[in-house]
Design a protein around this nucleic acid. Sequence first.
DNA 1: AGCAAGGTTCGATGGTCGTCGTACAATGGT
DNA 2: ACCATTGTACGACGACCATCGAACCTTGCT
Lengths: 114, 114
Amino acid sequence: MSSLTSESALGTAESLGHPATDEIELAGVLQALSDPIRLRIVVALAAGEELSCKSIDLPVVKSTCTHHFRVLREAGVIRQRHEGTSRLNSLRRADLDTRFPGLLQAVLGALRDS
Amino acid sequence: MSSLTSESALGTAESLGHPATDEIELAGVLQALSDPIRLRIVVALAAGEELSCKSIDLPVVKSTCTHHFRVLREAGVIRQRHEGTSRLNSLRRADLDTRFPGLLQAVLGALRDS
DNA sequence: AGCAAGGTTCGATGGTCGTCGTACAATGGT
DNA sequence: ACCATTGTACGACGACCATCGAACCTTGCT
């Protein structure tokens, strides 16, 4: 299912299962973005700053939070890295723009209105 | 679940549960587009012509086909109308562009490469 | 009237998803 | 050393989803 099998996705120092840019799949990204909670996460990250899971307040418990961040990470939407006890998340904006030009911008634009 | 309760969505002459333009929801559209078979349908309709269900050949049986077209219709991605014994489908391109500018174009662009 | 073609409806099935709670792990401060 | 903080892992549960087959409906043709 996951297709996180490439070297670049798993091996390197600090990463935990990020797909390479050219491995990001459209259906996967759309799927990942089709959940309201995950859309909120993306909106929060759209400002550009790295945010810990806890700093985005969501109406779900911790373990569910972990789940949503993992879905976004495995789809290639966000990047996660460890920093002390927390995990910092950021949007893979450049990677997404490379792979699917205009997509993220369109989604964020649609989100700004609502 | 469906939120297809408005007058404009259900009542009129030829329509069967199309959401009004301003009722189209982003998460619903993304969800609808997150299935490979439905993406194939969208690609086929992107040329601009109305197509019957049968004229798009998909690796599923009829009833599954009906299911996918309904998902796309209820999400506001396509429009369906009766014509004789068949049902003609078309992309709601203008409506989607109004509601989520650039989104459809980005998706279609991403699809063209793959 | 009879029939073929194109779609829908319904029930069933197996798989995935979102959610939770509990237990666990890692880090940093006191 | 202890503990609080932050997050993960795992198991469970209910809901939803994609798929199929069979029965049915509608339209158009002969």
